[in-house]
């Protein structure tokens, strides 16, 4: 099968969506002529015209707000925030408008809105263009939060999100855009459910977004050097959070390590641990550990940024510690 990058996969999904439903349109900063700061919306302007592919002013509140308003009357906007860091300037429209309206209005309003944005560190973009803010979003009832870890998942999850009648924040990690994998040419959807990316019997790593690849690298290393079989579960959707595949895995391995790029304090790992221990307490043989960024903003200098990020070494170390605890409690 052909291999394409996540950027190409997102672009392909957008073309399919535009070709299939005339209610789909997109707007955002520099997305039309320039193809977006995320470089995912190229060719859309040529293929579908300036009405449905709109460059906006630098007005994040109006971009998200107009998306909310248009979706309330039946359009299916896919709006783009160049960086997730810009939710700050649009947050009222996410927190108080998009997230609240369906419930607050008694279920009488649907909101088929997708907010596409990029997250993540590792490329020297500094503290205000590198964050992982998914936990803030997942904390708010009323919005979906989806984070693909590869091109194949991105295409299927994005089409699923566009067909969703609820607001979805679709977060693409910037370090994944150039990473290629096998992606079918035809349209397909992937549901909001975790995916076991590697099977193993000794320990479960629960992770998502760019950390899936780091975790798979660690699992490979652990297999080769120590014969340890790590299972890697990709959460894929933080809301709705389907715990069943995660619980099933932990009940099998009896221990877990959570890996995410966001800083540790208040991160989504806390929620995962709370739910895992609640449902697998009798199976657990070791405290669940977290591998996450330290509680500081993302630094710029290359050595600091690389040190900030969770990596194969840190993950491997946490896995070994967890397995030692498991052995002691066996």
């Amino acid at each position: 099968m052909r291999k394409i990058s996540m950027r190409e996969a997102v672009n392909e999904a957008l073309h399919i969506a535009f070709n299939s439903d005339s209610n789909v349109f997109t707007m955002g900063e520099d997305i039309a002529v320039y193809g977006g700061q995320l470089r995912c919306s190229y060719d859309l302007l040529d293929n579908f015209g300036p009405e449905r592919v709109r460059d906006t002013p630098i007005s994040e509140m109006a971009i998200v707000g107009a998306g909310v308003g248009a979706s309330m009357i039946g359009k299916r906007p896919v709006v783009e925030l160049s960086y997730i860091d810009f939710i700050g300037t649009s947050f009222d429209q996410i927190l108080n408008q998009a997230a609240k309206m369906r419930y607050m209005y008694g279920g009488h309003v649907n909101m088929p809105l997708v907010i596409r944005t990029q997250c993540g560190a590792g490329l020297g973009n500094g503290a205000q263009h590198s964050q992982s803010l998914e936990a803030i979003l997942a904390h708010i009832p009323g919005i979906r939060v989806v984070m693909p870890s590869n091109a194949y998942d991105a295409k299927g999850l994005l089409l699923h999100a566009i067909r969703d009648n609820n607001p979805v924040v679709f977060i693409e990690h910037k370090a994944l855009y150039k990473v290629k994998c096998e992606v079918p040419e035809e349209p397909y959807e992937i549901e909001y459910t975790p995916d076991v990316k590697r099977t193993g019997k000794d320990l479960t790593i629960v992770t998502y977004s760019a950390m899936v690849n780091r975790s798979l690298e660690a699992a490979e290393l652990l297999q080769k050097e120590h014969g340890i079989e790590v299972e890697v579960v990709d959460v894929r959707a933080l809301e709705p959070l389907d715990m069943e595949p995660i619980i099933r895995s932990v009940k099998k391995t009896n221990c877990a390590v959570i890996v995410h790029e966001a800083c540790e304090k208040g991160g989504f790992g806390g929620e995962l641990i709370a739910q895992i221990q609640q449902h697998t307490f009798k199976s657990l043989k070791a405290p669940i550990l977290r591998v996450a960024a330290p509680n500081v903003p993302v630094p710029f200098a290359v050595n600091l940024e690389m040190s900030y990020l969770p990596d194969k070494t840190k993950i491997t170390k946490a896995v070994m510690t967890c397995l030692e605890n498991k052995k002691a409690n066996a």
Partner: peptide
């Protein structure tokens, strides 16, 4: 806890786009 999300998805049939 009702009414937070619409559990139904829109009825859209995806069609490939050939550039």
């Amino acid at each position: 806890t009702g009414d937070l999300f619409d559990q139904k998805f829109a009825d859209i049939e995806w069609k490939s786009f050939v550039k």
